[in-house]
């Protein structure tokens, strides 16, 4: 089975939600990966849509690179609504 490619499986659990990573399957091609993913990850109507993506085509950040990669967002507090204090009279915004 090593000659079979590894695919990552993403499932949309309900209409309106994002696809979420659930695991992986081995398959000879994408069509088979889809069938295997259906059978493996959605036996109890856990999903309404499935994506299968060859694992070796995914570029991932190393989770240890936290500081380097995600640091810029830490010091940009003005990107959050809570940064802007409005007078009480304005009401809910």
């Amino acid at each position: 089975m090593s000659e079979w490619r590894l695919y990552e499986v993403f499932v949309r659990s309900k209409h309106g939600l994002n696809h979420k990573h659930v695991g992986s399957v081995h398959a000879a091609d994408a069509e088979m990966a889809m069938e295997n993913a259906r059978e493996l990850y959605t036996r109890r109507s856990e999903g309404v849509s499935i994506w299968v993506v060859p694992s070796d085509t995914i570029t991932a950040s190393a989770s240890d690179e936290k500081e380097v990669l995600f640091d810029p967002s830490e010091d940009k507090v003005y990107r959050h609504a809570s940064f802007y204090k409005l007078p009480d009279e304005v009401g809910h915004m």
Binding site: M1, S2, L6, G23, S24, V25, H26, L40
Partner: peptide, 16 residues
């Protein structure tokens, strides 16, 4: 079995 083999493969082990 398959969920677990797939978790195991994330550690660089080969299922076969």
């Amino acid at each position: 079995g398959l969920y677990l083999y797939s978790a195991m493969e994330t550690l660089g082990a080969d299922r076969d």
